[in-house]
């Protein structure tokens, strides 16, 4: 229907048609929102059922009835996510700064930007396969092969990098040129301008990006299957297989015991709450900083 077809004579009919289509959209919105709300409700209900102190104090157990928990998986997730962010965030910030301040609209920067956007949404399972092949297979070119927490952290770092790069570039572009001009007018070199003026001005936004990246990688399951593999024990050794919350959920949920299913729900609730909290904190901090 084009605007050229507008005809005042059948206005009433067109109004009714429009209202009908509006209603369909409202219906679609309600169906979608109710479905998603239902999932969250189920998650909270089943998650609370499985929750208990043992979840946070005991390591996983292979067989039910031994008071197994998720503590080792939570610690493993914290370690791998933390190291992943420690590697991925500085890299991502450097890429973002390069794109926004040095490369700008040049051809090389355009290619990097495009490739970064592809990496941003590439299937995470493939990142896992990639890291498996360079760090985990026997005689791997790096590390010394075998499943390890470090390999998991590297996979997560590769997933965090494009997220941080994207948000860093976007936020640095928002820094007014007057800041840079003022700095250059004082005689500062470009690197000094970037480090002392631009990055501090965009600091809040960069932090927001890092939080979002942490939120994303903390829920990633697929890449860890091929890298840190998972473990039932307390493994704080970075060079050995390491447990993680998403893998624990995956293994428990796929198992046959009811107790394990309950623990899987509890784990899913913990991870969802953590991810949502990270998102909310990053939004609130972003809001507060942009208001200042």
């Amino acid at each position: 229907m084009s605007i050229a077809a507008i005809n005042p004579a059948n206005y009433a009919r067109r109004r009714i048609f429009s209202a009908f289509m509006d209603m369909l959209c409202v219906l679609a919105a309600m169906v979608g929102l109710v479905l998603l709300a239902l999932i969250l409700l189920t998650l909270v209900q089943k998650g609370l059922e499985g929750m208990g102190l043992n979840v946070f104090t005991h390591a996983m157990r292979n067989t039910p009835g031994q008071g197994g928990g998720l503590a080792n998986a939570i610690v493993g997730s914290l370690i791998q996510t933390g190291i992943g962010a420690l590697i991925g965030a500085p890299l991502g910030i450097a890429v973002g700064v390069y794109l926004a301040e040095v490369g700008r609209t040049g051809r090389f920067a355009s290619v990097v930007r495009f490739v970064n956007d592809i990496l941003l949404s590439a299937p995470s399972i493939l990142i896992g396969l990639f890291v498996y092949e360079i760090l985990v297979v026997p005689h791997a070119p790096f590390l010394h092969g075998g499943f390890s927490g470090m390999a998991g952290a590297v996979a997560l770092a590769l997933l965090a990098m494009p997220v941080v790069a994207r948000t860093t570039e976007d936020i640095i572009k928002l820094v007014p040129d007057a800041f840079r001009e003022g700095s250059v007018a004082l005689g500062a070199r470009e690197s000094v301008t970037i480090i002392r003026v631009v990055i501090p001005a965009a600091f809040g936004g960069i932090l927001t990006g890092i939080l979002l990246a942490v939120a994303r990688i903390s829920g990633e399951t697929a890449p860890l299957i091929f890298t840190s593999f998972g473990s039932y024990g307390w493994s704080s050794d970075l060079w050995h297989p390491m447990a993680s919350l998403p893998i624990a959920i995956y293994r428990y949920a796929a198992g046959v015991y009811d107790e394990h299913h309950r623990l899987a729900w509890a784990g899913a609730l913990i991870i969802t709450v953590a991810v949502l909290m990270l998102n909310i904190v990053s939004r609130v901090s972003h809001y507060l900083i942009s208001k200042r």
């Binding site: 890429v95 040095v102 920067a109 490739v115 990496l119 790069a165």
Partner: peptide
């Protein structure tokens, strides 16, 4: 900064080649 930007390109190329 340039090296970091190259890491992005190398990562994509390396994934393709390794797979």
């Amino acid at each position: 900064l340039y090296v970091a930007a190259c890491v992005v390109l190398v990562t994509l190329a390396a994934i393709l080649i390794i797979l």
